[in-house]
Protein backbone atom coordinates (compact mmCIF):
# COMPACT_ATOMS: atom_id res chain seq x y z
CA UNK A 1 0.00 0.00 0.00
CA UNK A 2 1.36 3.42 -0.93
CA UNK A 3 2.26 5.68 1.99
CA UNK A 4 -0.18 8.46 2.78
CA UNK A 5 2.24 11.24 1.74
CA UNK A 6 2.43 9.70 -1.73
CA UNK A 7 -1.35 9.72 -2.09
CA UNK A 8 -1.40 13.36 -1.02
CA UNK A 9 1.33 14.17 -3.53
CA UNK A 10 -0.65 12.57 -6.37
CA UNK A 11 -3.76 14.44 -5.32
CA UNK A 12 -1.92 17.78 -5.30
CA UNK A 13 -0.34 16.95 -8.66
CA UNK A 14 -3.74 16.18 -10.18
CA UNK A 15 -5.16 19.48 -8.86
CA UNK A 16 -2.22 21.40 -10.28
CA UNK A 17 -2.47 19.74 -13.68
CA UNK A 18 -6.17 20.48 -13.86
CA UNK A 19 -5.23 24.10 -14.56
CA UNK A 20 -3.44 23.03 -17.75
CA UNK A 21 -6.35 21.28 -19.42
CA UNK A 22 -7.89 22.29 -22.73
CA UNK A 23 -11.49 23.40 -22.78
CA UNK A 24 -12.91 22.37 -26.14
CA UNK A 25 -16.15 23.91 -27.33
CA UNK A 26 -17.91 22.90 -30.52
CA UNK A 27 -20.62 25.38 -31.35
CA UNK A 28 -23.67 23.53 -32.61
CA UNK A 29 -26.62 25.68 -33.49
CA UNK A 30 -29.79 25.89 -35.46
CA UNK A 31 -31.12 29.23 -36.63
CA UNK A 32 -34.59 30.34 -37.66
CA UNK A 33 -35.17 28.95 -41.14
CA UNK A 34 -37.07 31.80 -42.74
CA UNK A 35 -36.05 35.19 -41.34
CA UNK A 36 -38.72 37.84 -41.79
CA UNK A 37 -36.86 40.09 -44.24
CA UNK A 38 -37.35 41.77 -47.56
CA UNK A 39 -36.17 39.51 -50.39
CA UNK A 40 -33.98 41.17 -52.99
CA UNK A 41 -34.27 40.37 -56.72
CA UNK A 42 -30.71 39.06 -56.73
CA UNK A 43 -29.23 35.62 -57.22
CA UNK A 44 -25.95 35.04 -55.44
CA UNK A 45 -23.21 32.52 -55.19
CA UNK A 46 -21.60 32.12 -51.76
CA UNK A 47 -18.04 31.03 -51.26
CA UNK A 48 -17.48 28.96 -48.13
CA UNK A 49 -13.74 28.38 -48.06
CA UNK A 50 -12.13 25.60 -46.05
CA UNK A 51 -10.81 28.20 -43.63
CA UNK A 52 -14.35 29.48 -43.09
CA UNK A 53 -15.93 26.04 -42.76
CA UNK A 54 -13.32 24.84 -40.28
CA UNK A 55 -12.65 27.98 -38.27
CA UNK A 56 -11.42 27.20 -34.77
CA UNK A 57 -10.19 29.78 -32.29
CA UNK A 58 -7.34 28.61 -30.08
CA UNK A 59 -6.37 30.74 -27.14
CA UNK A 60 -4.60 30.32 -23.86
CA UNK A 61 -5.85 32.09 -20.74
CA UNK A 62 -3.40 32.29 -17.84
CA UNK A 63 -4.57 30.15 -14.89
CA UNK A 64 -7.54 28.93 -16.93
CA UNK A 65 -5.83 26.70 -19.44
CA UNK A 66 -6.19 26.45 -23.20
CA UNK A 67 -9.43 27.02 -25.04
CA UNK A 68 -10.52 25.77 -28.46
CA UNK A 69 -13.76 27.06 -29.90
CA UNK A 70 -14.91 25.42 -33.13
CA UNK A 71 -17.21 27.89 -34.86
CA UNK A 72 -16.89 26.74 -38.49
CA UNK A 73 -19.98 24.57 -38.86
CA UNK A 74 -22.19 26.96 -36.91
CA UNK A 75 -21.35 30.00 -39.02
CA UNK A 76 -22.00 28.07 -42.22
CA UNK A 77 -25.35 26.99 -40.75
CA UNK A 78 -26.16 30.64 -40.02
CA UNK A 79 -25.45 31.84 -43.56
CA UNK A 80 -27.36 28.86 -45.02
CA UNK A 81 -30.39 29.78 -42.95
CA UNK A 82 -30.20 33.51 -43.56
CA UNK A 83 -29.21 34.02 -47.20
CA UNK A 84 -32.11 32.18 -48.92
CA UNK A 85 -34.49 34.63 -47.23
CA UNK A 86 -32.59 37.65 -48.56
CA UNK A 87 -31.78 36.48 -52.09
CA UNK A 88 -33.95 34.76 -54.68
CA UNK A 89 -31.34 32.10 -55.38
CA UNK A 90 -28.29 31.01 -53.44
CA UNK A 91 -25.59 28.73 -54.78
CA UNK A 92 -22.56 27.48 -52.88
CA UNK A 93 -18.93 27.36 -53.96
CA UNK A 94 -15.78 26.24 -52.17
CA UNK A 95 -13.45 28.64 -53.98
CA UNK A 96 -13.78 32.04 -55.57
CA UNK A 97 -14.08 31.63 -59.35
CA UNK A 98 -15.97 33.10 -62.29
CA UNK A 99 -19.54 31.95 -62.75
CA UNK A 100 -20.47 30.38 -66.10
CA UNK A 101 -21.84 32.80 -68.72
CA UNK A 102 -25.34 31.33 -68.51
CA UNK A 103 -25.41 31.41 -64.70
CA UNK A 104 -28.24 33.50 -63.25
CA UNK A 105 -25.95 34.65 -60.45
CA UNK A 106 -25.70 38.44 -60.06
CA UNK A 107 -23.15 38.62 -57.29
CA UNK A 108 -20.64 36.42 -55.51
CA UNK A 109 -20.47 36.70 -51.71
CA UNK A 110 -17.32 35.63 -49.90
CA UNK A 111 -17.77 35.84 -46.12
CA UNK A 112 -14.64 35.85 -44.01
CA UNK A 113 -14.29 35.81 -40.24
CA UNK A 114 -11.58 38.41 -39.64
CA UNK A 115 -11.50 38.17 -35.88
CA UNK A 116 -13.09 36.33 -33.00
CA UNK A 117 -12.55 37.15 -29.36
CA UNK A 118 -14.04 35.86 -26.15
CA UNK A 119 -13.78 36.52 -22.45
CA UNK A 120 -14.67 34.61 -19.32
CA UNK A 121 -15.78 36.02 -15.95
CA UNK A 122 -12.33 35.37 -14.49
CA UNK A 123 -10.86 37.94 -16.89
CA UNK A 124 -13.49 40.67 -16.74
CA UNK A 125 -14.68 40.34 -13.12
CA UNK A 126 -18.20 40.36 -14.49
CA UNK A 127 -20.92 37.73 -14.47
CA UNK A 128 -20.73 37.15 -18.21
CA UNK A 129 -19.08 34.96 -20.78
CA UNK A 130 -18.76 37.12 -23.91
CA UNK A 131 -18.01 36.51 -27.59
CA UNK A 132 -17.22 39.07 -30.30
CA UNK A 133 -17.20 38.29 -34.02
CA UNK A 134 -15.92 40.50 -36.82
CA UNK A 135 -16.80 39.45 -40.35
CA UNK A 136 -16.22 40.92 -43.76
CA UNK A 137 -18.46 39.89 -46.62
CA UNK A 138 -16.69 40.58 -49.88
CA UNK A 139 -18.99 41.17 -52.83
CA UNK A 140 -17.73 40.30 -56.30
CA UNK A 141 -19.23 40.57 -59.75
CA UNK A 142 -19.98 37.21 -61.34
CA UNK A 143 -16.60 37.22 -63.09
CA UNK A 144 -15.12 36.50 -59.65
CA UNK A 145 -12.47 39.18 -60.13
CA UNK A 146 -14.14 42.55 -59.79
CA UNK A 147 -14.42 43.34 -56.11
CA UNK A 148 -17.48 45.54 -55.67
CA UNK A 149 -17.51 46.15 -51.93
CA UNK A 150 -16.39 44.92 -48.56
CA UNK A 151 -19.34 44.68 -46.19
CA UNK A 152 -18.35 44.81 -42.50
CA UNK A 153 -20.39 42.74 -40.11
CA UNK A 154 -20.04 42.39 -36.36
CA UNK A 155 -21.72 40.20 -33.77
CA UNK A 156 -21.77 40.20 -29.99
CA UNK A 157 -23.17 37.69 -27.57
CA UNK A 158 -22.99 37.04 -23.87
CA UNK A 159 -24.24 34.52 -21.36
CA UNK A 160 -24.68 34.91 -17.66
CA UNK A 161 -22.36 32.82 -15.53
CA UNK A 162 -24.74 30.17 -14.23
CA UNK A 163 -24.06 28.31 -11.01
CA UNK A 164 -24.83 24.92 -12.53
CA UNK A 165 -23.76 25.57 -16.14
CA UNK A 166 -20.36 24.56 -17.44
CA UNK A 167 -18.03 27.06 -19.09
CA UNK A 168 -18.38 25.13 -22.36
CA UNK A 169 -22.14 25.55 -22.38
CA UNK A 170 -21.86 29.24 -21.50
CA UNK A 171 -19.31 30.01 -24.25
CA UNK A 172 -21.30 28.02 -26.80
CA UNK A 173 -24.46 29.94 -25.94
CA UNK A 174 -22.62 33.27 -26.12
CA UNK A 175 -21.23 32.31 -29.54
CA UNK A 176 -24.70 31.38 -30.79
CA UNK A 177 -26.04 34.73 -29.58
CA UNK A 178 -23.17 36.51 -31.37
CA UNK A 179 -23.90 34.61 -34.60
CA UNK A 180 -27.59 35.47 -34.35
CA UNK A 181 -26.65 39.10 -33.76
CA UNK A 182 -24.40 39.23 -36.83
CA UNK A 183 -27.05 37.48 -38.93
CA UNK A 184 -29.77 39.85 -37.74
CA UNK A 185 -27.70 42.89 -38.58
CA UNK A 186 -26.92 41.60 -42.08
CA UNK A 187 -30.51 40.54 -42.77
CA UNK A 188 -31.88 43.97 -41.81
CA UNK A 189 -29.19 46.32 -43.05
CA UNK A 190 -28.04 44.71 -46.29
CA UNK A 191 -31.40 45.14 -48.09
CA UNK A 192 -31.45 48.80 -46.96
CA UNK A 193 -28.16 49.48 -48.74
CA UNK A 194 -29.22 48.70 -52.28
CA UNK A 195 -28.60 52.23 -53.57
CA UNK A 196 -25.08 52.15 -52.20
CA UNK A 197 -24.56 48.68 -53.64
CA UNK A 198 -25.79 49.78 -57.09
CA UNK A 199 -23.46 52.78 -56.98
CA UNK A 200 -20.54 50.60 -55.92
CA UNK A 201 -21.25 48.16 -58.77
CA UNK A 202 -21.38 51.02 -61.26
CA UNK A 203 -18.05 52.35 -60.01
CA UNK A 204 -16.51 48.89 -60.13
CA UNK A 205 -17.74 48.41 -63.71
CA UNK A 206 -16.26 51.74 -64.78
CA UNK A 207 -12.96 50.90 -63.16
CA UNK A 208 -12.90 47.35 -64.50
CA UNK A 209 -10.57 46.62 -67.42
CA UNK A 210 -11.98 46.82 -70.93
CA UNK A 211 -12.54 43.58 -72.88
CA UNK A 212 -9.26 41.79 -73.62
CA UNK A 213 -7.98 43.83 -76.56
CA UNK A 214 -4.68 44.31 -74.78
CA UNK A 215 -3.44 41.11 -73.09
CA UNK A 216 -1.54 43.12 -70.46
CA UNK A 217 -3.16 42.71 -66.98
CA UNK A 218 -5.02 45.77 -65.79
CA UNK A 219 -4.75 47.01 -62.21
CA UNK A 220 -7.47 45.79 -59.89
CA UNK A 221 -10.12 48.45 -59.21
CA UNK A 222 -10.27 49.92 -55.76
CA UNK A 223 -13.11 48.27 -53.80
CA UNK A 224 -15.70 50.25 -51.96
CA UNK A 225 -15.91 49.95 -48.21
CA UNK A 226 -19.47 50.06 -47.02
CA UNK A 227 -18.11 51.32 -43.73
CA UNK A 228 -21.41 52.58 -42.43
CA UNK A 229 -24.05 50.33 -43.86
CA UNK A 230 -26.83 52.05 -41.96
CA UNK A 231 -28.83 54.66 -43.80
Amino acid sequence: MAPRWLSTFYLLLACTLAGCTTTAVTVEATFPERPVVQQLPLAVSVVYTDAFRNYTLKESIPQRGDWEIDLGAAQVTLFRAMLPAIFTEVRERETLAAEPEDSPVDLILAPELLDMQFSIPFQTRSNFFEVWLKYEVQLYEKNGKTLVARYPLTGYGRTRDGFLDSAQVAIEQAAITALRDAGAFFAIEFPRNQDQLAAARARARLAAPAPPVDPAPAPEPAPTDLEDPTI
Binding site: F31, P32, P35, V36, R180, D181, A184, F185, A187, I188
Partner: peptide, 12 residues
Amino acid sequence: VDALYPWFEPRT
Protein backbone atom coordinates in the same frame (compact mmCIF):
# COMPACT_ATOMS: atom_id res chain seq x y z
CA VAL B 1 -38.20 35.69 -31.05
CA ASP B 2 -37.44 32.91 -33.56
CA ALA B 3 -40.66 33.49 -35.48
CA LEU B 4 -39.80 37.17 -35.86
CA TYR B 5 -36.07 36.79 -36.40
CA PRO B 6 -34.20 39.15 -36.94
CA TRP B 7 -36.40 41.86 -35.42
CA PHE B 8 -36.36 40.97 -31.70
CA GLU B 9 -32.69 40.25 -31.11
CA PRO B 10 -30.99 42.31 -28.34
CA ARG B 11 -29.55 44.78 -30.86
CA THR B 12 -32.56 45.06 -33.15
